[in-house]
Design a protein around this nucleic acid. Structure first.
Length: 594
RNA sequence: GGUUGCGUAGCUCAACUGGAUAGAGCAGCUGCCUUCUAAGCAGCAGGUUCGGGGUUCGAGUCCCUGCGCAAUCACCA
């Protein structure tokens, strides 16, 4: 709103001064660097041909015109080609007043578009680890951000519950499990199954080693070790519906789901729909037929079906095996259609690691070639891996950071910090425990979401996650601090209504804080456009940081002018509200006290 | 080897999509709790933005090139 007024003002200035049509929405404004006076900066360099003047002169000329004709412009200064604009105190207090009275500030009207967000997508052969956490938090947060931008959002989870890797843990359990149950082992179901997945791998490796010692070529040994052959046989049994195998599969997967449910619950993550690959893996074969009929696919001599993507700058890609069985791509093609049938989306987001960039590039190209109109709305939210100081995480080698362990550690650390700081006075145990969860989860989610999703990131378990500085708890703390102010305000029966004209001159701190508040809609929009929770994370940190500066320097209750007191409480209230809203977009709760 | 992505302070990350003297946090050092929550605030120090060319009023950002790291290039998922 302030920004728009200035853009229009500059547009009008160009018309009046240079008889030049400059679209208001095309007027680029940037925040003024803090070493100069002003809030908004207009760069005149790009318009030198229009103004036909030196940058400084043009800047002054536009500045003069704005000061004369636009009420909110109180002053300006020109440094080289940069026109720095200072707004009047009144315009700022008016702006805050508008935001205060607008209960839907920062909310976007429904835009009538549907978007599906698929994320998490775990395998049912091992528990979730740190990499899954980034995936889950990203997907959940992105869904929230899109919803806040007016989309109708559906969150879905496509569980990889079948395949050779699932059979590996089944086989190991069958051989060495002695009918162990999660209860008997004292393990969550997913951890129990994970144990057998690792066990399979150990035996498998031993067998390979043995064969190599006997003189077998290592590559052949990998294919001929008894364990892997048994696993393959088991997969065939499963696919043919062998009862014993299916019963075992259902029992073990049931345990895993129970385990996953607990983890999702702890993380605060929920889905609208659960898809299972055991129900979807055969989909797509019809699409292969369709593609052959349309001439999009072609068959090779051995009967395998391919798509030629060389015109698109890619390779030929297999879409159906010679034996007629489906590959990953076949299934995903079918899933696309199924999802669109279930929920006719305008956009469909796949939250999947960047190791699958090529797969999705190919998938989207195929759907487009098949003439699916929704193909343009398919989007791979490709995120970078979470690396450890030792390198990549490998579940079979035990170098993973387990999700459940990490969550518990975070809660423990939160408890420790809270107690050390003496913050639990007056809290009952339930309240305290709930606070530890809020803080621990906030720290972890913020840590994983603050980094640009596209970039890979490093997690150092030794150094663990901080609770000070650029962290979730810092922002949560700021909210708790403001809550204390608001409690005091209401106990003194001081309201938030004020007369803007009576507030008087504002300090630099107050102006900057309102400016930051006014930027919220921009950040929200940008976060949706880029599918990037990191933009919200950065915004809310800046906002909290700005508030803390204000809090430190500007007294609230120790002020004579009644309107000024109410204005500052209102400023606090609006800030707290935006912190809460922003953190909700990241899936993070904020406490009233901490 | 081909393709794609990345390389910014000792460490972890920003930089509003081409704008001013590249900013935060952590780690280190110095101040600030008798006044609204010190999980805070203020300050000091820390940079050849991997190297080399180019494009222009202006480049961490765009183009070319070299180096390094990662992913991918399966009738695996």
């Amino acid at each position: 709103m302030l920004q728009q007024t200035i853009q229009e003002g500059i547009s009008n200035a160009f018309k009046a001064l240079y008889n030049y049509e400059l679209e208001a929405s095309n007027v680029g404004l940037q925040p003024t660097r803090k070493e100069f006076e002003g809030t908004y900066t207009f760069v005149v360099f790009p318009y030198l041909k229009v103004t036909k003047k030196k940058p400084e002169e043009a800047g002054s000329q536009i500045g003069d015109w704005l000061k004369e004709n636009v009420a909110i412009i109180a002053n300006y200064n020109v440094v080289k080609g940069f026109l720095n604009l200072e707004l009047s105190s009144l315009s700022w207090s008016n702006a805050l007043n508008d935001i205060l009275s607008d209960s839907s500030y920062g909310e976007v009207e429904p835009n009538g578009e549907k978007v599906m967000v698929e994320f998490s997508s775990p395998n049912t052969n091992k528990p979730l680890h740190l990499g899954h956490l980034r995936n889950n938090f990203l997907g959940d947060s992105t869904a929230r951000i899109l919803a806040a931008n007016g989309y109708e959002v559906k969150k879905v989870n496509l569980v990889n519950d079948r395949g050779i890797h699932i059979c590996k843990s089944m086989l190991a359990y069958q051989k060495y499990g002695n009918n162990e149950t999660p209860e008997a082992a004292g393990l969550k179901g997913d951890h129990l199954i994970g144990k057998y997945y690792v066990k399979f791998d150990q035996h498998y490796k031993d067998e390979i080693q043995q064969l190599v010692v006997e003189g077998v070529d290592p590559e052949i040994a990998k294919k001929e070790a008894p364990s892997i052959i048994e696993a393959q046989q088991m997969l065939q049994k499963w696919e043919s519906g062998d009862e014993e195998t299916v019963v075992l599969w259902e029992k073990m997967n049931g345990w895993v789901y129970e385990g996953f449910d607990k983890t999702y619950e702890t993380m605060g993550i929920h889905f609208d729909t659960m898809y299972k690959e055991s129900n979807t893996y055969l989909l797509g074969k019809e699409l292969v037929e369709e593609g052959l009929e349309k001439g999009v696919f072609f068959k090779k001599e051995n009967g395998s079906v391919w798509v030629d993507l060389t015109p698109e700058g890619m390779d030929e890609k297999l879409v159906l095996r010679a034996d007629g069985t489906a590959v990953y791509m076949t299934q995903d093609m079918g899933t696309c259609d199924m999802k669109h049938k279930d929920f006719p989306f305008d956009k469909s987001v796949f939250v999947v690691g960047n190791e699958q960039d090529y797969h999705f590039k190919v998938l989207f190209a195929i759907m487009s070639k098949l003439g699916r109109e929704y193909a343009d709305g398919l989007y791979h939210l490709s995120y970078g891996m979470v690396d450890l100081p030792s390198g990549k995480m490998k579940s079979r080698e035990g170098t993973v950071v387990d999700a459940d362990d990490l969550l518990q550690e975070m809660f423990g650390t939160a408890e420790q910090h809270t107690k050390e700081l003496g913050k639990i006075e007056g809290m009952d145990e339930q309240e305290a425990n709930s606070l530890y969860q809020t803080l621990g989860l906030g720290a972890l989610k913020y840590f994983l979401l603050k980094v640009d999703p596209k970039k890979r990131m490093l997690f150092n378990p030794q150094e663990s996650i901080e609770f000070q500085g650029h962290t979730g708890p810092f922002i949560q703390y700021t909210h708790a601090r403001i809550s204390a102010i608001l409690r005091r305000g209401s106990s003194l029966e001081i309201g938030t209504s004020f007369v803007p004209a009576q507030v008087g001159e504002l300090s630099k701190r107050e102006v900057e804080l309102i400016y930051k508040i006014s930027e919220y809609p921009n950040s929200l929009k940008e976060a949706a456009k880029d599918f990037s929770p990191a933009i919200i994370a950065q915004y809310v940190y800046d906002l909290a940081k700005e508030y803390n500066g204000f809090y430190q320097e500007v007294p609230i209750f120790n002020e004579e002018n009644k309107d000024k007191v109410s204005f500052r409480i209102a400023l606090s209230e609006v800030t707290a509200g935006l912190i809460r809203k922003s953190m909700m977009l990241l899936g993070i709760a904020v406490p009233e006290r901490m």
